[in-house]
Design a protein around this nucleic acid. Structure first.
Lengths: 339, 339
DNA sequence: CACCGGGCTTGGAACGATCCACAGCCCTGC
DNA sequence: GCAGGGCTGTGGATCGTTCCAAGCCCGGTG
């Protein structure tokens, strides 16, 4: 289709080919309703013949918008079962592309975590950001808000009452409720919780799902809860301690990483996961999918998260009235061999 | 530092502030050696005071280069233990940023896998591409080459004798050799191979590492090899069949996914991985790291791959003479509980 | 018949950076 | 004293697109 010529075709080239002016071609692309049907068809034919695509730099210079969305990739943490980002990223890229945007990745140098944002913003390289780690008193949200930069957060503004930015999050509490209900149905009553330190808002939210649901079913929680780091090793030790003192028949974990540690302990003690002791993780990571008996896990609807993020971003960038500040999605439970 | 003003500062603003002309400021940024030391200092101070960053769109329009590198994200394949991309991506982003580039992600619509490339190229949105799936007669490399678009491939041009593009790859054969040597040292002699179908170049390369090393040590390979899909299920069945007919004492697998399947089978039969039967995977995925006894696995130096890719890309974009077409890196072996 | 107004189209300016050719300047050498 | 050459610094033009205000053509109206 595209006619190969020495130089890349521009608006002027197309205008020449179609026998109209530049502006008419521009209108054909941006406001086709302004053109007479016949003219529009002729211009479109010319575009096709020449294989024309508008130059992004020029468009972006003039309109002051790059149609790029910035996303910072965190320094990789190995040993944690967070293939989360993988799934999320795929979906974010697809949703963005569907909305005419592209995703630009950047890493912030070791020094100032805000430097990357600042640079991209000042050079008008991106139209907006998606931020993904709002949990730990992270300064990004506040800083971006202060600067008036558009962004959508994956994660609630837990401890920021003054914030007004749009966000999308997954209801961890509801996810854990699903897990506990599932285990109760399977006739478990001594269900232990293995989760994170108290400082984590996400951790407390998930834990609340366990506490509430246990109490709803009239089950005791005292002495059945362990807290620690998000590591395999902690899961291992916590399971050992709990098994020795409280002999629970099921474990609900704040993450797949921890659940893997619990599985370690079961294996060491010759207990068969699923039949002897049930285990449920959180994240539905790849490890959950492929590790031996298959780990039952709470699955975050990351695909939908990405879709919602792009939707909110679109609203924000179109300066539409914000009809909705937050969006809370409910996870599902993927049942596998360990329960 | 940055003085907050209504509009974003431009070259002209900075020039005014410093009492010089636009071009002088431009030179201060792009060819500082042209300026007298004192002038340079004054300009830099002005830049600092105003918080100026050059507008990327304008620069890119003029220089015809966006300093963006395009990377297509593949449709996610769940159930496979390939958190490869995660590690690779992180490293690629960091290396690129170090070299003044950013990574732009795109997904190709369901229809034409080349559409995304074509679009970005015609709209001059990216300077170059990184392609990651050269294995299966993929048309991208050939198409990009035909178009004269700069790119570097992660993966050798296995079946493309005519190709001349730069590439970086990991020596899978050497990786499997490491695995087999390791097992031989551990006094194993009946070492089985569980790998992919014949069609896969990568698969055959890795398998050759097993065959060669076995023969070097005077060990037999016949009937000790199984081929199939890259799934947990295949690994499971292959291990069952091999254990029944040939009773190997060790398995070397073409991927961690397959290795996980082998571990399934061992668990079903009450065999303890590591002490009864050794298993080695390939990729050092997260699953390998966290799954119960810890899976010994061949680890690809993805960080280094990314660094080399960016280096080659830099050479290509600077129109330097290409000193090196391909770059083959050697993986390492991460020893864990299963061996 | 002159005038008006709406639908399409037009040329010119603007976005902000870089490239180009040239104009000062200072210094050296004859 | 003056020509010449190496450094710095200058204004104008340019990249390709979109915004702006004005122009053209046409039928309808007083």
């Amino acid at each position: 289709m595209a006619r190969r010529s020495g130089k890349a075709p521009t608006l002027a080239t197309v205008a020449d080919e179609a026998g109209v002016s530049r502006q008419t071609v521009s209108n054909a692309l941006n406001s086709p309703h302004l053109l007479r049907e016949e003219t529009l068809a002729r211009v479109r034919r010319a575009i096709d013949v020449l294989g024309y695509s508008p130059n992004r730099a020029a468009r972006s210079l003039r309109t002051r918008s790059s149609h790029l969305i910035g996303l910072r990739v965190e320094p990789a943490t190995e040993g944690t079962a967070n293939a989360l980002m993988d799934r999320f990223l795929h979906s974010l890229v697809e949703s963005s592309n569907g909305a005419g945007y592209h995703v630009l990745l950047f890493s912030s140098g070791d020094a100032d975590p805000l430097a990357g944002y600042d640079d991209l913003l000042r050079s008008t390289a991106v139209d907006a950001f998606v931020i993904t780690d709002t949990y730990r008193g992270n300064p990004q949200a506040r800083w971006l808000e202060g600067r008036g930069a558009p962004f959508v957060a994956f994660g609630r503004p837990w401890n920021e009452p003054g914030s007004t930015h749009p966000w999308v999050d997954v209801d961890g509490r509801a996810g854990v409720t699903l897990a506990v209900e599932h285990l109760v149905e399977r006739a478990h009553s001594r269900i232990a919780w293995v989760g994170w330190q108290k400082g984590s808002y996400i951790g407390e939210d998930r834990r609340a799902g366990w506490v509430d649901t246990m109490h709803e079913h009239g089950l005791a929680t005292s002495r059945l809860s362990a807290r620690g780091d998000d590591t395999v090793e902690f899961g291992r030790r916590a399971a050992q301690a709990l098994l020795e003192s409280e002999s629970p028949t099921a474990f609900v974990c704040a993450s797949d990483t921890i659940a893997m540690g619990v599985l370690h302990t079961l294996a060491e003690r010759g207990l068969r996961p699923g039949s002897d002791v049930a285990v449920v993780g959180f994240d539905d990571s790849i490890a959950a999918q492929v590790a031996p008996p298959g780990l039952t896990s709470v699955r975050q609807p990351l695909e939908q998260v990405a879709v919602e993020i792009v939707r909110l971003l679109g609203q924000r960038l179109a300066h539409k009235p914000i009809e909705q500040r937050g969006c809370l999605l409910t996870p599902t439970l993927t049942v596998r061999g360990t329960s």
